[in-house]
């Protein structure tokens, strides 16, 4: 069923990268990092799902989005300003973090659930492998680098330089991994499917790979 929505007032809009923004509103609900909300411009309008990108204990909730020029919602979200009303659901979903070691894999706005986990303090024994085209496309990189340190790996497919691993994220994944490490993979369907196939080829059991596809 379509998720019941309620109005929230946007408190601020923050640029997250070229053609990417985070929309914030006052948080008055509890949630688990990694969960999503349904979001719409009107109470009964088309809904799209977004992972919360903010921490479980922060005063604001927020979602990260990038512009899909052919999309219906994001060109409209792009012009939303502080003070405007959006309609969001209660958080739901089961792509949530667990204690213990894990490797997180993300591209694009698929980093949002991991941003939420980091902002919720879930950093111990976690490695994040983030893929993007150029240095400016790594959403949340300052925060992630600060919190994860050497466990934050940025794979740039069309850029080089300090702190960047040159090459595609999926190339980086093509290495031996401990078989008992859980993987959390989030992003575009193409990346998720390719990353999962590579990990399976590297001996990671499919039951250890949890995926969330943005669609």
């Amino acid at each position: 069923m379509a998720q019941p929505l309620r109005p929230v007032d946007v408190t601020r809009v923050e640029t997250a990268g070229p053609d990417a923004w985070t929309l914030y509103w006052k948080r008055d609900f509890s949630f688990h990092a990694g969960q999503v909300v349904a979001l719409s411009l009107t109470a009964d309008g088309p809904q799209r799902l977004y992972s919360l990108a903010t921490g479980e204990n922060e005063s604001e909730a927020g979602v990260l989005f990038n512009l899909a020029p052919d999309g219906w919602l994001t060109p409209r979200l792009q012009v939303v300003c502080a003070g405007q009303t959006l309609f969001v659901s209660e958080p739901f979903g089961s792509f949530v973090g667990t204690p213990g070691p894990a490797v997180w894999v993300a591209n694009g706005t698929g980093v949002a659930p991991f941003l939420s986990m980091v902002r919720s303090g879930q950093t111990a024994d976690k490695t994040l492998v983030q893929g993007a085209r150029t240095r400016s496309d790594f959403y949340g990189q300052e925060l992630l680098a600060g919190k994860l340190g050497a466990s934050y790996i940025r794979c740039a497919s069309a850029d080089t330089g300090e702190g960047l691993h040159a090459g595609r994220l999926t190339t980086f994944l093509g290495r031996p991994w401990p078989a008992d490490t859980p993987f959390y993979v989030c992003g575009s369907a193409a990346m998720v499917v390719e990353a999962r196939d590579i990990l399976i080829r590297q001996g990671v059991p499919f039951k250890s790979i949890l995926s969330e596809v943005y669609f």
Binding site: A189, V193, R196, F206, V213, F215
Partner: peptide
């Protein structure tokens, strides 16, 4: 053409969407 759902057992998903 292709699919976004990424089901583990599906060949179509390997094309991406």
């Amino acid at each position: 053409v292709g699919c976004k759902m990424g089901c583990l057992f599906c060949m179509t998903g390997k094309q991406g969407f």
